[in-house]
């Protein structure tokens, strides 16, 4: 069913990619739980007609892909360590993005954007105070102005 990715090779040494298998299993479980929740409450066949077989095929494909990924070992241990250390910054950015998404409608997109840009720049190593101030205050103000006044979008804002 599957073909091996071109950029990876099987090697007898190195670490198996457990993360890939865990991710694949999580998604497989998620689609199966979703399908079960639909099938168990369905009133007629058409309620689950696409979902049940789709979820079963998806779960099988996820698990199969995860197992294939597990067989492809990272043969350079350093690369794996490097990849993990690099992953910290994206994870922090994802966290900031989620907090921004949840908070902006309440604290206003102008204030929220300013804080979000400031924190993103700090996380990515910017330390020059005037650049931080200009980018966060100026950037947030310009973008909020474009959406609120130019594009006439009803964004929740505090200052504009």
């Amino acid at each position: 069913m599957s073909q091996m990715p071109h950029d990876q090779t099987e090697a007898s040494h190195g670490r198996p990619d457990w993360g890939a298998l865990i991710f694949a299993c999580l998604l497989a479980v998620a689609v199966l739980v979703f399908a079960w929740s639909v099938v168990s409450t369905a009133r007629r066949t058409t309620d689950w007609l696409l979902i049940a077989p789709g979820a079963m095929i998806a779960a099988f494909a996820f698990i199969y892909a995860g197992i294939v990924d597990l067989r492809i070992k990272r043969h350079v241990a350093d690369l794996a360590v490097k990849a993990r250390s690099e992953a910290a910054q994206p994870v922090i950015l994802i966290g900031l993005t989620c907090v921004f998404a949840g908070a902006a409608p309440f604290i206003g997109f102008d204030l929220g954007s300013g804080i979000f840009i400031l924190l993103c720049l700090l996380v990515q190593g910017e330390r020059c105070w005037w650049k931080l101030a200009l980018a966060s205050i100026g950037g947030a103000a310009v973008m909020s102005w474009v959406f609120v006044d130019l594009l006439m979008v009803r964004l929740p804002v505090i200052f504009l």
Partner: peptide, 24 residues
């Protein structure tokens, strides 16, 4: 610089997404 490009494009995306749905 990438460090500037990323938050600016993400902010525009968030504002755009709110504009589409009208909610969080």
């Amino acid at each position: 610089r990438l460090s500037y490009l990323i938050p600016f494009v993400l902010t525009v995306s968030m504002m755009g997404a709110f504009a589409i749905t009208g909610s969080m």
